[in-house]
Amino acid sequence: MTDSILKIQAVRKTYVSVRTGDTIEALAGIDLEVPAGEFLAVVGPSGCGKSTLLSLVAGFTQPSAGEVLYRGQRVTGAGPERGVMFQDYALFPWRTVLGNIEFGPLARGVALTQRHARARELIRLVGLDGFENRYPHELSGGMRQRCALARMLANDPEIWLMDEPLAAVDQQTRTILQDELLRLWGDAARRPGAPTVIFVTHAIDEAVLLADRVVVLARRPGRIKAVIDIPLPRPRPAQRGSPQFAALVAQVWDLIRDEAAKAIVEEIDR
């Protein structure tokens, strides 16, 4: 594929546990290419290396072996063209909603009036009007998520790296945020130059609903067990509850079931 924005080639990542001194093989031999504009979901049981994979692409850590190439360049550090949304949001508690959202433009040297204008635009877009001067601890879980999303979007990143971004909210909020995320990404009418998304989740139905492809990871060591195309038509929100949707969820679930069971047993053993 020539238009791959991201190439992950024979990547391994081993950690050395500070506590026991053991080496942990978080990822073993990952090969993956992501075309520009794709919405890719990554699922797998906890501890299978999903966050590690995102950290490698974000440039927070380096692979122990193999290469991560972004637009043909080896990733050696973080950069604003690769936006990250963390599972715990990692909002700056000492900055207001506005302060958090304008942080990216501030870091890139955008002038005050322009970055405020951009931040206010995003605040409207994610529905946080009236909350711009609140601190993160004054927001609900769903609002923090929107704030983290807006903060990531403020830099107009080419790729969105999202680590279980909707894990910690209730089902209704989650459904609403899924729809909003799709809308922001360009679910209905995909523009040229639309962002690429790598979306980590442990919810299979969420992966199937959002993604063009679903990567299923296995654990110990972390590796790709399967890559499944999701040929559902877009816009996707209309597909919730359709028979094809249910069939695809069942297909992914079949692949993951053994792994999930193993993970639970190991969790109990420990």
Partner: peptide
């Protein structure tokens, strides 16, 4: 994750010191 978030948003060492480390 605050340090990582700042780096991913484009912050350099100076801004990270001023806007992340000191307030933390």
């Amino acid at each position: 994750n605050h340090l990582r978030a700042a780096r991913a948003l484009g912050a350099g060492p100076g801004l990270i010191l001023r806007a992340v480390v000191v307030p933390s």
